[in-house]
Design a protein around this nucleic acid. Sequence first.
DNA 1: ATTAAAATTTAGGCAAATCTAAAAATATAT
DNA 2: ATATATTTTTAGATTTGCCTAAATTTTAAT
Lengths: 217, 217
Amino acid sequence: MTLSEENYLKTIFHLEKEYKDGVPTNAIAHEMHTKASSVTDMIKRLAEKDLMVYKKYQGAKLSDSGRKHAIKIIRKHRLWECFLVDKLNFNWDEVHEVAEQLEHIKSEKLILELDKFLEYPKTDPHGDPIPDQDGHIAVIQKRVLAELQRGEEGICVGVNDSSSAFLQYLDKNNIALGKKIKIEDKEEFDNSLVIQVEGKKMTISGLAANNLYIKKI
Amino acid sequence: MTLSEENYLKTIFHLEKEYKDGVPTNAIAHEMHTKASSVTDMIKRLAEKDLMVYKKYQGAKLSDSGRKHAIKIIRKHRLWECFLVDKLNFNWDEVHEVAEQLEHIKSEKLILELDKFLEYPKTDPHGDPIPDQDGHIAVIQKRVLAELQRGEEGICVGVNDSSSAFLQYLDKNNIALGKKIKIEDKEEFDNSLVIQVEGKKMTISGLAANNLYIKKI
DNA sequence: ATTAAAATTTAGGCAAATCTAAAAATATAT
DNA sequence: ATATATTTTTAGATTTGCCTAAATTTTAAT
């Protein structure tokens, strides 16, 4: 399996959540910063290797084998992110690019031992679940902050947007995984929220509130 | 810099020790399990990027810039080997293949932090020196075991052959870095040696004795 | 000093992964 | 329902890194 093939599998896996019955060629092209024609080429190649099910004009679907491969890559990606943050002093907004490289390293023993070394973490630094060896992915109980009503509170458990811009914005505002957040007020006009984090009040935009995952308490 | 280019630089760097005035095309081809014509192609490409100095039929020579790059890759390779052995329970005969992959990961911070995390190791699990950030490589005081005379003794400080066959042979015979070895007898007929390691006598072949580095005490 | 052998380079091709431009199929809008 | 717009696919090129086979250069041998 080539690096490029692995990246396609991973991307399609993520997009399947949004596009249940076939991921459009264009969606893949956009996500991978490439052209639709290149995507068609690759989909065909992956289909020939039985990693995908391909019917012309019907969008991309992973085969069971393709999905298994995709999950392995995601497992590696997230374990490496843990390593970078827990052991090498990376901040959560710095890990993505490096993990994108590390996820392609091929060695069963490496991942087994890395998992053990990190003491079998359940989630990565962004709160996303780490698939287990058998490819099982735990479902994390969560809802977007924007859904909560005035007076409700919860613990921050993840982000929907892992861009460093958003993560740095959270850092700047003292919001991190594990922090308790209470809704003080909701502004209907622009969906912004007044929240309280560790006793400090602040306002966050509707967009930000839609990218923060909370577990209600 | 592509993966393939990096592998050429690294290989040529290592071969330059043996071929001081130009590494023959064939030597590179042999080492990289490829064909001489492919090597010529690549040498030209590297020369165009000023990573090598190329004159037809004169063999390959690294430029200063090429040598700097090669050393960076070797630094990364050896640091990752330390990581695998010290932190992930790899044996010294299992690390090479994985380190060959890891050495191509691109991130300054990653290597800086890995070095710190490992507490700035001086040598890798085979006793080879780890180049520092500026590309300086310490010279390790050593000689091959085969050179020692009857009655002399030394500490094992490295291996010339890192094949897993040889390393496993050493494991099996209780020879490892740091062990004290004393020459009990030399057999002129086949250059084999009778040595003593931790009080136990054993015979090793001339070939093995030529691949073990010793520091005299 | 020729000639034979070995090493190196050139020429021409191939596969992976991408691109642009054009063609074909599907979706949308009136 | 038909025309228009959008999406997807095909066709044909390009680049990287490799190959084989043939030509060229260097080295070694007599």
